[in-house]
Amino acid sequence: MIRKKILLIGDFNVGKTSLIRRYVDNAFNDDYLTTIGVKISKKALNIDNREGELLIWDIEGATASKRIPTSYFRGASGAVFVADVSRAESMTHLEEHIESFLSVNPTAEYVIAYNKSDLLSDEEREALHRGDDTFLTSAKDDTDVEILFTTLARGVLR
């Protein structure tokens, strides 16, 4: 069985842990509990008849005073970059996170989650510009969480 390490990377309180809980356990909790350090969750997959296991690293989010240690990135095959659509600064920081991750893993796959999309109106949702690798997700409403991870998994398990 192929095992691949992926990480969820973004500012604090953008919903990284909630996305993992939704994807792995199909559960959601509205309470905010800061993640510290790293916690690994496993998810077995069968993509295009290939057995695989994602080792999903939930790491603490970046704050104004503390960046994410790049040592966490070593050995990763992919990443989900997460931003909170209701916090503009978390969106603008995405580029910085991507750059930092790719400096350690230049050939890694990645996808982007504009999370907490349940907070947007239909008009705001439409107005949000996004590329093919970007998903408007909501861990709360279970919107596009599965496709977010599956898209990345298809890339890293190839």
Binding site: R3, K4, K42, L55, R74, G75, A76
Partner: peptide, 10 residues
């Protein structure tokens, strides 16, 4: 220790 996945060479 799945933490080691990706770090096997090290």
């Amino acid at each position: 220790l799945p933490e080691l996945v990706g770090r096997e060479q090290e």
